[in-house]
């Protein structure tokens, strides 16, 4: 298996070509956060609705590379409808999975996200995978504190 086969696994390309929960979320209590990767020009806007301690709905509008788009798409599937507490656990598991040298045991919500483990071998691309998640962290922070969200950047 060549490196690119490993990185560009079908799951990733499938999410890249048909990203889930794409587009703008409208309605009350929807907050939006921008995330950018100034190195490669990836941009995304996360729309987030947090109600009763749950991420009741979310969507993403993005222009990015395959890793960035797929990570965002998989993230929305994994966390939609989950409690904020569970989402925070998933965020930290995902970060562990991307940052630690060892294999990390992944929860069931990570069925597709596991495919992103291949990115670990390409340090520059880890940022692409993390951008949607870091944008989500900022969105949750903003939802909790009521403060306006800041733009998130990989640098």
């Amino acid at each position: 298996m060549s490196l690119s086969d490993e990185l560009y696994r079908e799951t990733i390309l499938d999410h890249y070509h048909r990203p889930r929960n794409q587009g703008e979320l409208k309605g009350d209590n929807v907050l939006s956060v921008d995330g950018v990767n100034p190195l490669c020009g990836d941009e995304l806007t996360l729309f987030l609705k947090v109600e009763d301690g749950k991420v009741s709905d979310l969507s993403i509008k993005s222009r990015g590379c395959s890793i960035n788009t797929a990570s965002a798409s998989m993230m929305t599937e994994a966390i939609k409808g989950q409690s904020v507490e569970r989402v925070n656990e998933l965020i930290s598991t995902f970060k562990d999975m991307m940052m630690s040298a060892d294999e990390v045991n992944v929860p069931e919500e990570f069925e597709d996200l596991e495919a992103l483990q291949g990115v670990k071998k390409y340090p520059v691309r880890i940022k692409c995978a993390l951008l949607p998640w870091n944008t989500l962290i900022e969105g949750l922070r903003s939802a909790e504190s009521g403060a306006n969200p800041h733009m998130v950047t990989t640098e």
Binding site: S4, S66, C128
Partner: peptide, 23 residues
């Protein structure tokens, strides 16, 4: 078409080809 420059840079790199991608 359909391939982000970042992905392109990565795939050609596997064949030892160094190009610049991005802005």
């Amino acid at each position: 078409d359909g391939i982000h420059p970042h992905d392109l840079g990565q795939i050609v790199n596997e064949d030892g080809v160094a190009i610049r991608v991005g802005h």
